[in-house]
Design a protein around this nucleic acid. Structure first.
Lengths: 211, 211
DNA sequence: AATAAAACTGACCATCTGGTCAAAAAATAG
DNA sequence: CTATTTTTTGACCAGATGGTCAGTTTTATT
């Protein structure tokens, strides 16, 4: 029987889920090189040999997690649509990115560490999907500039700024929490921080924004 | 004789320098947990036992590097002075940070990984020096707002945005280079990117900026 | 209940880890 | 040049690492 269409068994589903979750934790905390399969197994509550039954190598496990991160990345990417109103399109995109930073901080950290290490696992993604997406958005932003809808700024640099700001709230959450009296940002604070980012960036590129 | 005032011998100076340089490389690339003393020693061109003669433990070596990063951080911090003109003060600070991001990308990456891992080595610095510095700058920014010199934004969130944008160019240099046709940003591009950041942020908080 | 397939795991392995040490070599001081 | 201090290093250690495997237990199917 073709295993491709075989339903995943109950224990497989349960264990793969808890391994992936533990691995996300550990990879975010220690990076690929620093993470150990025995620590991941311990956090997942299973023996190491069992982990290797589901994911034969540390690399395979890491790649599975990288795949999840891509999926999330693509979801946010889709919110940047070719809209007539740059203010609406950009504010929707920034908000989507801020949302992801809050909901998936571990993925963001793993991504950051991958890039810092020279993207050994995701270089092809950068060169194909990310590059393609960026070029198409650069075109849209250029059109907005040509139509006089936003100030003349280099589109790529604008995107970098959006990425920087939004990912910062995931990657540097610990630093922000420390400055916030040791507390994570509340829902209200996070909404403020999001509005703040949207406002500064939009006003920064000359888009009127109602407060 | 008091060794504290003893001049460092020639070999000591030479070796400590090359070890620190190699260690900065490796820690930035692999994080504290992932870095190995034998790899650092190999890159420094000395046997591992010799490395441990100068830095008894991996921690001691790491702390020495963290100390260097603090020094650099403080240098940038000083450029944010209590100036009458927010535009001038902020643009000077942003430029200083961008400069550091370019000149010391490894330090920035090590800092980023420290924070992502929950700041095991620098928590006290965050709670004392960084917190104190931030509070004092928040006061200055609040005064600017009260005087109507800049728009009403949360000062802390403004600082986060500045940190995010400037550090991004160090931490995510590889991603940016990939999107830049595999080339590092040229001097000219880096100047553009810096001006772009200054412009968007200043305009974003309602400061006129001449282009 | 019988069978086949999937899941589990203790014990094991070669290699690498941070770190030590004693003895040799090089640098420095008198 | 001699004596002393500093530096260098191969060999070594106990523990951890990623990964394997054979045999047992659990689950699913009939």
């Amino acid at each position: 029987m073709d295993t491709q269409f075989q339903k995943k068994s109950k224990p497989r589903k349960r264990n793969e889920a808890s391994i992936l979750s533990a691995a996300e934790d550990v990879f975010a905390e220690l990076g690929f090189a620093g993470a150990t399969t025995s620590l991941i197994a311990r956090r997942a509550g299973i023996p190491k040999a069992n982990l290797h039954y589901y994911f034969p190598t540390k690399q395979a496990l890491y790649r599975a997690i990288i795949n999840n991160i891509f999926t999330i990345w693509l979801q946010a990417a889709e919110t940047f649509d070719d809209c007539d109103d740059p203010g609406e399109a950009l504010s929707r995109y920034i908000r989507a990115k801020m949302d992801i930073a809050r909901k998936h901080p571990l993925g963001s950290k793993i991504w950051a560490q991958e890039i810092m290490q020279g993207a050994p696992q995701i270089q092809d993604f950068l060169e194909t999907t990310l590059k393609g997406w960026t070029l198409s958005r650069v075109k849209i932003i250029k059109r907005w500039i040509a139509e006089g809808k936003i100030a003349s700024v280099d589109p790529a640099y604008l995107l970098y700024m959006i990425w920087a700001t939004t990912q910062h709230y995931a990657d540097f959450a610990h630093q922000i929490n420390t400055l916030n009296g040791g507390q994570a940002l509340s829902d209200k604070q996070y909404e403020e921080v999001t509005s703040n980012a949207v406002t500064i960036i939009l006003r920064g590129i000359g888009v009127q924004v109602q407060e």
